[in-house]
Design a protein around this nucleic acid. Sequence first.
DNA 1: CCTACCGATCGGTAGG
DNA 2: CCTACCGATCGGTAGG
Lengths: 218, 218
Amino acid sequence: MQPKRSDRRRPSVRPAARAAPRPGRARPGEEANRRGEIVRAAARLFREKGFDGTTVRDIARAVGMRSGSPFYHFETKQDILLAVMEEGLAAGLEATEAVLAAKLPPREKFRALVRAHLEILLDEGHDFIPVLLYDWRSLTRENRAKIVALKDRYDAVWQQVVRELRRAGLLHTDSPLARLLVLGAINFMATWYRRDGALGLDEIADQTVDFFLGPAKR
Amino acid sequence: MQPKRSDRRRPSVRPAARAAPRPGRARPGEEANRRGEIVRAAARLFREKGFDGTTVRDIARAVGMRSGSPFYHFETKQDILLAVMEEGLAAGLEATEAVLAAKLPPREKFRALVRAHLEILLDEGHDFIPVLLYDWRSLTRENRAKIVALKDRYDAVWQQVVRELRRAGLLHTDSPLARLLVLGAINFMATWYRRDGALGLDEIADQTVDFFLGPAKR
DNA sequence: CCTACCGATCGGTAGG
DNA sequence: CCTACCGATCGGTAGG
């Protein structure tokens, strides 16, 4: 006997009263909207239970659809995963490149970059990047290549800022390893951060900057 | 149609010639041995494909058993996961506490700790800790509690060394966040490290120590 | 987007 | 530890 992953209902019984969103037919024009809902719901579920631990039925239920209906919007479950990662990376990349564009001094630029990354990594409703980080293995080879291309741009932004920190004498190296250590330390926060914990995102950002660059001089 | 995860064979046909280890009955006395083989094979598979992405049949095949036979050694698949994590943590803890016991100066102690951790995190045949880090979510609540207890001891060792670094003036903080940043940066290496890459474990250890503490003075 | 369904696979078990 | 098997579930599809 397998452990049950979800409540089982008789197939012929319509789910009458439950907390989930409205089932039914989409009104014309809100189709793209529904697609976005699926992506967001899937991101949250993938983050919590992993890609393999989440069923298409879970996703359908979360947006108030019947079990087969997500396939009206996506051809395969894998395509949903790709959409989650692509949309998350695109949004993150936009925020990140905006930080680069704002001509801040190195330390402030680093702080802004860390803060922006913490938001998409840890804040409520931003489940895309954690899924990217922790469900990497579930991507097909072809989809992995697409994601890598986006991720490379992300890394380039960080490498650029690390270089500026080095030039300003705030770091003593700007090697790729330095970037990997900084980003790794931050990305690993997705493992231990609790939204109800002692530190907020602003405090974590400040202390992280201080840790890597040394306390700010005045 | 689902994508096939493995070759399918007619159930009545014995697998005659294949590369995997000998099928057949265990000789008396090597039972504990077989259990260990299962744990090691499972660790490797879990690391590659995740807990949910690995089937008991995969594990059985990897050690040359038929599909139901792992259940002679373990009650459930979950128990295999627990064994992987427990045995990995126990071994890591032993190596780690040995570093603490050897009375090295702070910088050398840190370096030895990093090096020991890199070994169990990245080296061939050490798949336990990566599984622990990346399949956390698949543990039941009760098993998670058991693992947390072991992990706390591990963290305590690192916190102790961070404290010594601070006292020696090599770090300017010994907060828990400092420990989380250092360990996170290192643990995240499991994501990007390639055994055929440019840097070996010794070089990574040296450069990591230099990054966090500043280059060694002479 | 629902209904109704399929083939494949999965974790696990009885009995030897 | 193998043989033979079960019930449940899963991703996906045809047809409306």
